[in-house]
Each structure stands twice: as structure tokens, then as C-alpha cells.
């Protein structure tokens, strides 16, 4: 499997390490219910199909990436900088 890093180009997946689900967002710890925190900390979906996940390009540009991958075929649909994804999310919150 190769991942096309938006900064470095296509690289062997050995240059990356996998973190996990990129869609979960930490709830506000002061106001969230214990169920919501439990969900955030422990519960993950395991979809057969497209999955957005965090990868770290440790042997390259040391960037965190959000990879959209089909878990059935390993086909990678999109790779974005996690920083850009997070900034876009905050912009969305503000709007």
C-alpha cells in the first residue's frame, strides 16, 4: 500500500504510522455527559467501506494526515493535511 502524502508525494506505507479514526471530535469535557465522553474515548465504528483515518508521516515530513481509505479494497480516495482539516472544522464551527 502506498499513500500519496500531499507534501512529499507517493510513499511506501512503512514511512507512516496509523493512529485511528479521524472523525471523532472530543466533546467539551465540562459540559458533555459521561455517555458522550465514554463514546468519544472507547467506541469506534468499524465500517466496511470508506473510512477517514489519521496517519503520521514520521519518516517524511512529520505531518499528520487524514486519509480516506476503503477498508474493503485499501483504495485511497483522498489524503489531506490534518491541520487543514482541523482548521476547516473550526471555520465551520464559527460560521
Amino acid at each position: 500500500m502506498r499513500i500519496r502524502c500531499p507534501h512529499c508525494g507517493e510513499r511506501d506505507n512503512g514511512e507512516f504510522s496509523y493512529l485511528g479514526d479521524a472523525t471523532v471530535v472530543r466533546p467539551d469535557g465540562m459540559s458533555a455527559s459521561s455517555e458522550a465522553m465514554h463514546d468519544y474515548v472507547y467506541l469506534r465504528d468499524n465500517p466496511a467501506g470508506l473510512h477517514r483515518e489519521l496517519w503520521y508521516h514520521g519518516a517524511g515530513c512529520r505531518s499528520w494526515l487524514v486519509v480516506t481509505r476503503d477498508t474493503r479494497t485499501h483504495e485511497i480516495r483522498d489524503v489531506s493535511s490534518a491541520r487543514d482539516v482541523a482548521l476547516a472544522r473550526h471555520t465551520g464551527d464559527a460560521a
Partner: peptide, 10 residues
């Protein structure tokens, strides 16, 4: 330029 690893060495 490329930042990569060679023989597991950054």
C-alpha cells in the same frame, strides 16, 4: 529533495 528513510535511518 526528499525526506525519507534509508535502511530504516531517517
Amino acid at each position: 529533495t526528499a525526506v525519507t528513510s534509508i535502511s530504516h535511518i531517517g
